Amino acid sequence: MTPAPGPAPARERAARLLLAAFVLVTAVDLVALLAGAHAPHTVAKPLLMPLLAGYVAVRRGPRLLIAALLFGWGGDVLLLLHADVAFLAGMGSFAAGHVCYLVLFKRHGTARARGRLLAAAYGVALVTTVALLWPDLPADMRGPVAGYSLLLTAMAYGSSRLGRTAGWGGALFLLSDTLIATGVADWPQLPRPDFWVMLTYLAAQYLLARGALGALGAPSAPAAAYGERNPSLT
């Protein structure tokens, strides 16, 4: 008689299912954005971060990482409302997620060999971006955008303390939110700008999660399968 599988195999199956669901919903969301289909995007977007947070939880990832992803979920939902108040609230939710990431990096990260050079590069990027956007931003958005940009840049820089994978995640998060800021400033946009925002954002959150799990020693066996299914996010 074959013994019943223990908790470890059950957890492994649950993790694989959650990651597969995240990949599937990611594909649905991105295809919907490319097709200009609003309804599937509205359904898919709120599912993404809870699925990724669930995967991290099953993998016994740190609570700060789970909290960061769920604050990202709050921002995702609020930005669906397309109102100024909701946009500011969403920015606040993402900012809370960045604080969680920063604490996580400080607790578990290590100093990088090229820390000063990387800090200088991010500093130049921050000052240049805010200076260029400032004249075109609505007056009531300038302060919040500048403050959020400072926090976001600090998170992107700090992510490298968990290794290259998380570092790329932080950089992509910065790129994604910069694309949003150019839209707020009414700059010319790429075709289907929401697609590029979501592509870079989802890649960022996945890489941050994967990098943190790897750096903290949490098992992440399904990562290879995920990379084969969706190489654009690896």
Score class of each variant (00 low, 15 high):
S93F: 04
A95C: 01
A95V: 02
A96H: 03
G97P: 07
H98A: 11
V99G: 08
V99P: 10
C100Q: 06
C100G: 05
Y101W: 15
Y101H: 14
L102T: 01
V103F: 11
L104C: 09
L104E: 07
F105A: 02
F105P: 13
F105L: 01
K106Q: 13
K106F: 10
K106S: 13
R107A: 07
R107Y: 02
T110A: 14
T110W: 00
A111D: 11
A111V: 13
R112H: 04
G115D: 02
G115N: 00
R116V: 07
L117R: 12
L117T: 09
A119L: 10
G123C: 10
V124D: 06
V124T: 08
A125G: 01
L126C: 06
L126R: 09
V127P: 08
V127F: 10
V127R: 02
T128S: 14
T128L: 15
T129V: 10
T129M: 15
A131E: 08
L132P: 05
L132V: 13
L133Y: 01
W134K: 06
W134F: 14
W134T: 07
P135I: 11
P135F: 13
D136C: 00
P138N: 06
P138R: 01
A139K: 06
D140K: 01
D140A: 12
D140H: 10
D140Q: 12
D140W: 06
R142Q: 08
P144H: 09
P144T: 09
P144V: 09
V145W: 01
V145A: 04
V145R: 01
A146K: 08
A146Q: 10
S149N: 00
S149I: 00
L150D: 03
L150W: 07
M155V: 04
A156Q: 09
Y157P: 02
Y157C: 06
G158P: 06
S159K: 06
S160C: 10
S160W: 15
R161D: 02
R161E: 03
L162H: 10
R164P: 11
A166I: 12
A166R: 14
A166W: 15
G167I: 13
W168M: 14
W168E: 07
G169N: 12
G170A: 14
G170E: 08
A171F: 15
L172V: 00
F173A: 13
L174A: 15
L174C: 11
L175P: 02
L175D: 01
S176R: 08
S176I: 04
D177S: 03
D177Y: 05
T178V: 12
A181E: 05
A181N: 08
T182N: 09
G183R: 15
V184K: 01
A185N: 07
W187N: 09
P188G: 12
P188E: 12
P188N: 13
Q189R: 14
P191T: 03
R192Y: 03
R192F: 04
P193Y: 02
P193A: 06
W196F: 14
